[in-house]
Amino acid sequence: MNKNLMVFWLSACFVFGLDRVTKVWAERTLALGEKVPGIEGWYEWSLYYNPGAAGGIFSGHVEFLITVSALAVFSLVWFMKKGEHDSNAWLQIGLGLMLGGALGNLFDRVFYHHVIDFINPIGESYIFNIADKGIRWGLYLGLVGLWLSRRNLKRAAKKQVSSSERTLEQ
């Protein structure tokens, strides 16, 4: 394993582990459909088995959703192994969070044929889990990482051009 990608792998393991622990807690503690007070003013806990993707789209198409999830997992790992991202911590954390979230929901789809959701924002009609938040926040951090990489590449290119110009002047 590339030690320079440790942040990527640790981020993925953190989200996957936290997702599994909280889903086991939700299934052992909550009754299906029951609403239990959670974080006052923010969330309540409500166990829901989502047979589809976000908001229940593609319900009943488990094989399709497993395939899409597996492709996402393989793509994230390939992208990190193929590219030179070992110095970009923001990108590593972001893609690691996304990988952990994708693995968490893939685990549910493979073993249960649905995703376990239990976090219900008060006043909203959707329910989610830790894996979903890992994917969402990973996307945000990954975009920040890509933006910083692009900025650093432009800066490096300018330095190279200016040093080439100085060499030509001499």
Results as ranks from 00 to 15, higher is better:
160 Q>P: 01
33 G>K: 11
85 H>D: 00
151 R>C: 01
77 V>T: 12
13 C>S: 14
103 L>P: 06
66 I>G: 07
142 G>Q: 06
129 N>V: 07
126 Y>V: 07
39 I>G: 08
24 V>S: 10
128 F>Y: 14
84 E>V: 06
124 E>I: 00
33 G>S: 01
12 A>M: 09
169 E>R: 13
30 L>S: 10
32 L>G: 04
93 I>M: 03
153 L>C: 03
136 R>Y: 08
3 K>A: 13
17 G>K: 08
114 H>M: 13
6 M>K: 12
39 I>N: 02
157 A>E: 15
111 F>S: 13
92 Q>C: 10
65 L>M: 11
78 W>I: 05
38 G>K: 06
93 I>V: 14
119 I>P: 04
127 I>C: 02
170 Q>L: 14
118 F>Y: 15
58 F>G: 05
83 G>I: 03
144 V>M: 06
107 F>I: 01
32 L>Y: 14
23 K>T: 13
9 W>N: 10
117 D>I: 01
13 C>H: 07
19 D>A: 12
86 D>A: 10
83 G>H: 14
152 N>I: 02
61 H>Y: 09
97 L>I: 00
4 N>Y: 10
148 L>N: 07
73 V>K: 08
155 R>P: 12
122 I>C: 03
96 G>D: 04
88 N>I: 05
50 N>P: 07
153 L>H: 07
36 V>P: 05
107 F>P: 06
100 G>F: 00
51 P>K: 06
33 G>T: 05
104 G>I: 02
145 G>Y: 05
166 R>P: 09
2 N>C: 10
7 V>Y: 05
24 V>E: 13
63 E>Q: 10
126 Y>Q: 02
